[in-house]
């Protein structure tokens, strides 16, 4: 039974990565209510930006990370401004937005592949192996700890933003009822634009950290996105705490599942969990 502590640490690591993606996705979905397939590739944008600035140009790594996060945010903002906003203005349905997001996902992924080739690349800049910490007999690396800390910080930051600022109030009002929010005078489109920026920046950070932990390739986005979505839904869509808890629950069920069965069924287990939740607890763990 001595693999149990490591299993637990594995779960925490996996959950933290999903949580990062879920945070960004949840924020955007809460405001726009459509399934944005391009969210995943925005994470890749962040990762590749850091690759370019830190590895190709050799700039300072922290600077590159900041640039990467900003670029991802801008990319998401731009996507909203030039594609989703015009569609919303035309009262396009969610399905149309889905197809448009598929188009954006395909296009941006192609651009990344053209600029950087499809080869799998790592972001690690240190020559030796990373610092490793031991927690209760389980091993965790420096990058993974950073991921965990980021989740905590961003969650706290988002809670502050949503509950302590006027901006956040407007966002919550929009999540509840977009029509009424508009009537009351909230400029929903501008708020959505900012939400896209923030959510996409978080996605960019997720891509960067995953890049440091394992690596990047142009197609990395979709897998991350799907898991982030599952985490958001089982946590309760639009709910910040919920998304994080959902992510860890997903990490738990997945890793526990493949411990008992086999790694080949990982995705199926994740989706089965989703279906179970949709059936029995559609409002998510938090049930709000």
């Amino acid at each position: 039974m001595d693999i149990l502590p490591q299993l637990i640490v594995n779960i925490i690591i996996a959950g933290a990565i999903y949580a990062l993606v879920a945070l960004g996705f949840n924020l955007i979905y809460g405001a726009t209510k459509f399934f944005n397939l391009a969210h995943g590739v925005i994470a890749a944008v962040g990762g590749y930006a850091v690759f370019y600035f830190a590895k190709t140009l050799g700039w300072n790594v922290y600077l590159a990370v900041i640039i990467g996060v900003l670029l991802a945010g801008i990319a998401g903002y731009g996507l909203d401004k030039f594609v989703y906003l015009p569609l919303r203005k035309r009262k396009a349905s969610n399905m149309v937005l889905l197809v448009a997001s598929l188009g954006a996902f395909t296009a941006i992924q192609a651009v990344i592949a053209i600029l950087f080739t499809s080869q799998f690349k790592t972001l690690s800049y240190s020559v030796g192996t990373q610092r490793i910490f031991e927690i209760f007999d389980g091993v965790i690396t420096q990058t993974q700890l950073i991921i965990l800390m980021s989740v905590a910080l961003i969650t706290a930051g988002l809670i502050l933003l949503l509950y302590k600022t006027r901006f956040g109030k407007a966002v919550r009002a929009m999540s509840d009822d977009e029509e009424v929010a508009k009537i009351v005078g909230i400029n929903t489109n501008r708020i959505i634009g900012r939400i896209f920026f923030i959510g996409s920046a978080i996605a960019g950070l997720a891509g960067i950290l995953v890049g440091f932990d394992t690596g990047i390739e142009p197609t990395m986005g979709l897998g991350l996105l799907l898991k982030g979505v599952i985490a958001s839904i089982i946590g309760g869509v639009g709910n910040i705490y919920g998304g994080v808890m959902g992510a860890f629950l997903l990490g738990f069920v997945e890793n526990f599942g493949i411990w008992k069965i086999s790694g080949e069924w990982k995705d199926a287990i994740a989706f089965a969990l989703l279906i179970v939740f949709l059936l029995f607890r559609p409002k998510g763990i938090m049930n709000k």
Binding site: P86, L87, A100, L102, G103, F105, T106, A107, A110, I114
Partner: peptide, 17 residues
């Protein structure tokens, strides 16, 4: 091939717009 994917994605977007 990647350029074609790019065009394909753009066409989807344009069609939706």
């Amino acid at each position: 091939a990647q350029m074609r994917q790019l065009v394909y994605g753009l066409i989807l977007i344009l069609l939706m717009l």
